[in-house]
Design a protein around this nucleic acid. Sequence first.
DNA 1: TACCCTTACGAAAACGTTTGCGTGTGGAAA
DNA 2: TTTCCACACGCAAACGTTTTCGTAAGGGTA
Lengths: 343, 343
Amino acid sequence: MKQKVTLKQIAKELDVSISTVSKALKDSVEISLDTRQKVKAFAKLYNYKPNNIALSLKNRKTKTIGVIIPEIVHHFFTTVIGGVEKVANEKGYNVIICSSNNSFDKEVINLEMLASGSADGFILSVAKETQLKKDYHHIEETMSQGMPVVLFDRIIDEVVCDKVIIDDSKGAQMATNHLLSIGCKKIAILTTVDYISVGKLRTNGYLRALRAYDVPEREELILKIEDIDNCESEISNFLKDKDIDAVFAVNELFAVTAAKVLGQQGKKIPDDISIIGFTDGILSKHFIPSLTTISQHGEDMGVRAAKLLIDKLEGDEAATEEYRTVIIDTSLIQRESTKKTKE
Amino acid sequence: MKQKVTLKQIAKELDVSISTVSKALKDSVEISLDTRQKVKAFAKLYNYKPNNIALSLKNRKTKTIGVIIPEIVHHFFTTVIGGVEKVANEKGYNVIICSSNNSFDKEVINLEMLASGSADGFILSVAKETQLKKDYHHIEETMSQGMPVVLFDRIIDEVVCDKVIIDDSKGAQMATNHLLSIGCKKIAILTTVDYISVGKLRTNGYLRALRAYDVPEREELILKIEDIDNCESEISNFLKDKDIDAVFAVNELFAVTAAKVLGQQGKKIPDDISIIGFTDGILSKHFIPSLTTISQHGEDMGVRAAKLLIDKLEGDEAATEEYRTVIIDTSLIQRESTKKTKE
DNA sequence: TACCCTTACGAAAACGTTTGCGTGTGGAAA
DNA sequence: TTTCCACACGCAAACGTTTTCGTAAGGGTA
């Protein structure tokens, strides 16, 4: 087991100083061609690689981006990470991913850990608990120590920093408009409790679309779900014998669950009831019938977030003081679960 | 913007030496109670956190585990990561995740980057390209430099190290047995090309099960798919008008695609044809009909892999020299897509 | 008063780099 | 022979820790 070779060892072997080795490897003109070649040959032979940790300490930057997301087993977040990685790798950055598991405490711990030397900046989507608690001191603190933070998707309005979001409200409006435009009038919505920022915004978009079409908003068509993972019976009860012609679900799971229970209740999709979801994941694509949905372009979000962060990290002082909010376009992906109703 | 506070700054502020501060924070008896309290109060006030990078350099370990997987947008791999994170966090380790995107080059780059100081050891599932190329020098090299590697799922037999796998062959056998036991006789298999280790093993398991039941193996019932992401037309052509009563698919995507095209071809599942998949992901669970499948217990794999790695990292020299292969049990999850055929 | 022991702290090395600056050697010019 | 200047290299500081060892001050004992 040959240990990792250091400058010091090479220097000793070749009977020169450490600085000579370092400079030789960097092709410094200070060092004679002869020595340079000798050092480089030796370094190659022993597979010398500079120690990142030492470099980080010396340069006071790690060339690493910390990404903290609420869930790691989640299609949308992984697509965002994909985008982040793409940009980061291009620009020579490493990516560390941590999941908060939707726990405030774990979010704080992860952030503090990464902030104490492991990452130069952060891309973050906050945990449910954080949105509920409204405690953002860890984020503020990180920024006050000079580390830039980019928030995405589940953001916090009160925190001043770069942000990448979709216009959730507009996306929901687009979804609802689509249903209205194909002739649906009695549109139920399956959404989350209000403290989830994106859920609330999507509910708002739904309501706005109804108003624009002069369709009265009806309380009994709105279901706000708390326990996302066990939503089936709740949705089933809610939908049972309800006089509706369409369902708008604010996420993929609600959409497929609605499709499933409606099927069980003898409804045909899209003939009896149209369904539209949110998030273009693997479920929407492969479900039968495939689900019309709103795409959030997760990878784009990741790309933009990473660019914003790297700009800040490498930018001059001027750019440092202004914060930008990038809004990613949503788009409607029309599939089989929505269909023009016959007049 | 208050910069991160260091020992040096505290020392200066309090007019003591750096070592005094360091010792005081560690409650060393060398330091008077008075000084200790003063230092601790000051450190708390300024939110002092030791710099991880400096600690890593000093201790020559990073307390970080590097995880490299072929794809980040992939349900199975994320569940494995979930398991790794769980154990890692318990034991005070950080996790860095990189994706190789199934590219050999990117796998090498990521590994080398993390190996040069960023991680103490690795949990790795190799890229397709790596399996094809059979070039494992980067892994051997990493290990020869004293960094333990645990391979999981897509492993390499030739590399001697700790491994966590499922018995793919046995799992496939279990799946095929299930089909046979409910009366299916003409079982097609949708599998991958042979260089993908897990695909080949699962094909073997299928064949073995057939032999054990004295069912002749028929070449025309075996489809080896190269381009996983565009498999629909291939599967559709293969299945068209084929005289079969069951399909075994070696992954989730093949399974749902088979279900879809069979549906299009007018077959009822499970009445006309039973389907069984591999991997218990989100698709199998939510598809209609929900798919019988073999669960790989991804989270377990992650847990075991992390434990193996940490054992090696913290173990004494004795444990260092022996390598273990942990085989995670697979289990059959029976859902709606398989049904006893009427005799 | 002289000596010793405890208490409380500081100096310095080490981890592996990079880099500005100092310096010895040799040859060329005067 | 003296002076000067490249050239080629080494020294040392710095990044932020931890830890070993050294030591000054003070009090107690003989």
